[in-house]
Design a protein around this nucleic acid. Structure first.
Ligand SMILES: [Mn+2]
Ligand SMILES: [Mn+2]
Ligand SMILES: [Mn+2]
Ligand SMILES: [Mn+2]
Lengths: 220, 220
DNA sequence: AAATATAATTAGATATAGCTAAAAAAATAT
DNA sequence: ATATTTTTTTAGCTATATCTAATTATATTT
């Protein structure tokens, strides 16, 4: 099964929207995610359905097939490997990599990805803490919870961000929160869910619930 | 001026066909180079003409403009930098890099290329000995002659290949000829122009004129 | 100079990928 | 159970990039 760059992008979006959610993915949701119009999505769904990477019943949304999942994970693998390359080797900031990786992920060359993976020493996570699927599409899931859901006095380590937008990542940089940082919940405001955390036993950061819910940690 | 990947490929082809040749480039030649049909070329020439990167007079072929030349050299720069990356960092063989570079060269990110250039330590030549234009499109030309034009007993150093096809490069590997090798012309056959050369003062290679004309050297 | 051959362009298709506007189906509210 | 709203699809249009077949312009022969 060979997909165009555009088909790969849609399939990836469908995969992401499927994750967690148990029911079908809707046309409107895909359109929002892809920043296209629902009419364009309907057209693409017909094509992806014909290619067998999704199950598509008109008016009832789509479910990704096993084949589709595998292909989506291949694209995600490439995207994340390139992100690691950009940060580790080319000194990109973690908020600068997404758009370039969005292009690089479509380069067709299994050898390239195999060699890139080796060159990067088989990284397991991308710069945002997201796991890199292996060449068979297997992902090592790591239990992670938003720090908004941790209790006062609990400790943990930041392992990922849920929102990888440049704006959010720059906020992280600004307040000194980063992947790998040790954190402890100092206080939680009942009223609005905002949180005060201690980073690396020295720096205290106060953040809204919205922010806290986008920082993922493993408890310790 | 923003070009599509396809436009960049055509412009690069036109640039290459222009090099050396003093007159306009013909539709048929471009079609042959691009492996498309002349009809497709006519269409593209109209578009490139409208964008001002070529001067196009129907039925009389094209000449690349200054603007076009600059853009073509940017694409060539990217292509060659990626080739260096693939060979130097990812251990690709020099006959495996072209097709992948042909895709990578279209990634749009000035920062990426600037950083890649630095990461590779500002290489001046690609794995086939071709010069890498700088960010302003300036190329350091090196005098180089096909070894078919060298005289008996003359010495030199292989600096590039004219033909970068996988087939030719694998032939080079097979006979042990490589960029950087010291060569001396041992014999030339008057009848058909074939040549015997000594590589690195130890290995003698006999080759047809066709082959010899595709190996470029600087005399010493 | 006219006939012929070659080269290049145009006309008309196809395929991808996007859009707006209209129509139809499904979901929700009365 | 209807009516209304929301969602989704279809129809029709635009743009890119390719093709084949037909046409036209230029170049070469005779
Ligand atoms: Mn993408
Ligand atoms: Mn990422
Ligand atoms: Mn290319
Ligand atoms: Mn090269």
């Amino acid at each position: 099964m060979k997909l165009t760059a555009s088909e790969e992008n849609y399939l990836k979006a469908i995969y992401h929207l499927s994750e967690g959610a148990s029911k079908s993915v809707s046309t409107n949701d895909i359109a929002a995610e892809m920043k296209t119009k629902p009419a364009s999505v309907s057209d693409m769904l017909r094509k992806l359905g014909e290619k067998g990477v999704i199950n598509y019943r008109k008016y009832y949304g789509v479910n990704i097939t096993q084949e589709g999942k595998k292909l989506a994970l291949q694209t995600i693998r490439k995207h994340r490997l390139w992100e690691v390359f950009l940060v580790e080797k080319l000194n990109f900031a973690w908020d600068e990599v997404h758009d370039v990786a969005e292009e690089l992920e479509h380069i067709q060359s299994p050898l390239l990805i195999q060699r890139l993976d080796a060159f990067l020493n088989y990284p397991k996570f991308d710069p945002h803490g997201d796991p890199i699927p292996d060449e068979f599409g297997d992902v090592k899931a790591r239990p992670r919870i938003p720090i908004s859901e941790m209790e006062i006095d609990q400790s943990g380590q930041i392992v990922a961000v849920k929102d990888s937008s440049a704006a959010f990542l720059r906020y992280m940089d600004k307040v000194g929160a980063y992947i790998g940082a040790r954190v402890k919940i100092l206080d939680k405001v009942e009223f609005d869910g905002s949180v005060e955390i201690l980073v690396d036993q020295k720096k205290s950061i106060f953040m809204s619930k919205d922010v806290a819910s986008n920082i993922l940690a493993i408890q310790s």
